[in-house]
Nucleic acid binder design. Structure first.
Lengths: 339, 339
DNA sequence: AAGTATTGCGAAAACGGTTTCGTGTTGATA
DNA sequence: TATCAACACGAAACCGTTTTCGCAATACTT
């Protein structure tokens, strides 16, 4: 058990002042060759490492980024974290992860915990409860204090800050168009209620593609699930009451789950009914048949978010200009549709 | 933009000393009713919150936990993180997540970044490269400095610290026994090389069950994958060269992937060939057929790890006693075996 | 030899809190 | 009226750095 050594310890041992030690370790011009070598050798010998906390206090920079997300077991969020980690780590930043578990209160508590000096900025995606409530005061407080915030994926227009999203509307549009091109006539959509910003946008893309086509819109072909929980009967009824030949799902879980129910009904995929989901996760890759998806490029999203945040953190000027980066989704073709 | 207010600011405004403000906010007996009320009202009005960094520096406690794991996109690890988060948050701790990406160097760098005051303790699972190399000096250094460490899942005996694992051997034993009970005769195992502590233990459980039975061991029925990458041809050849009716896989990805290859060969699951995997993730749940797995109870593991760590961090005495908690795995029966 | 630069280093303030100890004021006691 | 607690507060040290500024001692001018 060898306790950490401090500047003071080195100073005492070498009979110089703390300031001298500090400067010597920074290779300052002020200090003579001799002294520098002596100090540096001693420091290396005893494996001196400066105390991060003291440094943080001094320059009011923690080199920590707070990431607040609704759920970590969701594949998309883990890929975003990975992207954030990657970029942040390369820049010498650590990532503090907090989970809101889709709860407004937890989101608020987590932000308050971190906002008192623990972090230099936030990267977040709003909890569904927050989006439903439409209460963003906790975000406002943080930005008012001059703490930079980057919102990704689940965002709000009520807060002025940098944002990163994919073009959800375009993704849904592309997917729907693909169905249409392949001759599908009865294209359904399975989504959540509109309170999630992404669900809303995706539904719009779906509608847009249908409106542009000769098929037209049939609102009854949109199934809105009230929660993220899987409602087996609801989906079965939906399938029974419509003659569908294609389904666009707002996430991969809905898609894979629905595929199974369709298969149980004796339908062949993609001949009788084709599927496209959102989120390019493990599930899509290993599903049977493998699922065609609109990839959201989570890792990229994380990197871009981290870059935006760190740029803001490290910029001297307090420019009050914010940007919204819109990433292009791509279609990853797999066996749940015709190739 | 309202900047953070400090004790000094309050003291100046109220024309009292900083110490008085500090004590008043802590409701100290020393301070008069009047002054306390005045100070507290002022603090509330201006939304004073103490600076975490200053407090950390003072009492040498950060209330941060460092979590270093090989991979975050792996479902098991995300559930562990969720468990850690849950317990840690309830205790007022934040979780700093670092990814080693299975690399020894990254693991070392991450630990060094955090070990200089940023965290009160580590919870980690070793990268595969670290387990292969058998070099644990970075862990030794940290424990030597008196920083508590808890290892989970991928552990080593070379470091004295608290550990949390599931009984991997028992899990594999249970699974294999299940196959035997159901009359399976040719039970294979698909695993990684033995350098991963968990793979080794699981293989042993598999062997133990077979030895106890009349079936006996056939080493050629163990397929060892050199990496985590899926080797389609390797698995196909394995299936072609053996008459198998059951396969135990060391994780769910191997299992789901192998199931698909088996199905492509025209085999029915579970009638012709049954599958059991490890890790109770999304993949198992939504696979077709859904996969029977040995559940590792990741969330529980995270909670237990966090509890062990925080207990140690907050205990005054430096007891040098370490415990290893062994969690019981359970079999989650799904459609890839007979019910 | 006197004055000026240069070099090398240390004292001290600052970051934002906590905490120990000391002290002036008050009221009660003898 | 002198003595002493109790009360209410402030000064200052401390946590481990960084950084400014001042000041010796030496070297360089003329």
């Amino acid at each position: 058990m060898k306790p950490k050594i401090t500047l003071k310890d080195i100073a005492r041992e070498l009979e110089v002042s703390i300031s001298t030690v500090s400067k010597a370790l920074k290779n300052s011009e002020e200090i003579s060759r001799d002294t520098k070598e002596k100090v540096q050798a001693f420091a290396k010998l005893y494996n001196y490492k400066p105390n991060n906390i003291a440094i943080s206090l001094k320059n009011k920079r923690t080199k920590n980024i707070g990431v607040v997300i609704p759920d970590i077991v969701h594949h998309f969020f883990t890929t975003v974290i990975r992207g954030i980690e990657k970029y942040a780590n390369a820049k010498g930043y650590n990532v503090i992860v907090c989970l809101s578990e889709e709860s407004f209160d937890k989101e608020v508590i987590n932000m308050e915990m971190l906002a008192n000096g623990s972090i230099d900025g936030f990267i977040m995606s709003l909890s569904s409860e927050t989006q439903q409530k439409g209460d963003f005061n906790h975000l406002k407080e943080v930005t008012d204090q001059g703490i930079p915030v980057v919102l990704f994926d689940r965002i709000t227009n009520e807060i002025d800050c940098d944002k990163v999203i994919i073009d959800d509307e375009l993704g849904a549009y592309m997917a729907t168009k693909k169905f249409i091109e392949q001759g599908k006539k009865n294209i359904a959509m399975i989504t959540t209620d509109d309170y999630l910003s992404v669900s809303k946008a995706r539904t719009q893309g779906y509608l847009k593609a249908l409106k542009e086509s000769k098929l037209g819109v049939d609102e009854s072909k949109i199934l809105k699930m009230p929660t993220m929980e899987m409602d087996e009967q609801g989906i079965k009824d939906f399938f029974d009451s419509h003659e569908l030949d294609a389904v666009l799902c707002v996430n991969e879980i809905f898609a894979v789950y629905s595929m199974r129910l369709a298969q149980q009904k004796g339908l062949r995929i993609p001949e009788d009914i084709a599927f496209i989901g959102f989120t390019d996760g493990l599930l899509s890759k290993y599903a049977n048949p493998s699922l065609t998806v609109v990839s959201q490029h989570g890792e990229k999203m994380g990197e871009v978010s981290a870059k935006l945040l760190i740029d803001k953190v490290e910029s001297e000027e307090e420019e009050e200009t914010y940007q919204t980066k819109i990433l292009e989704p791509t279609l990853v073709i797999r066996d749940s549709i015709f190739h």
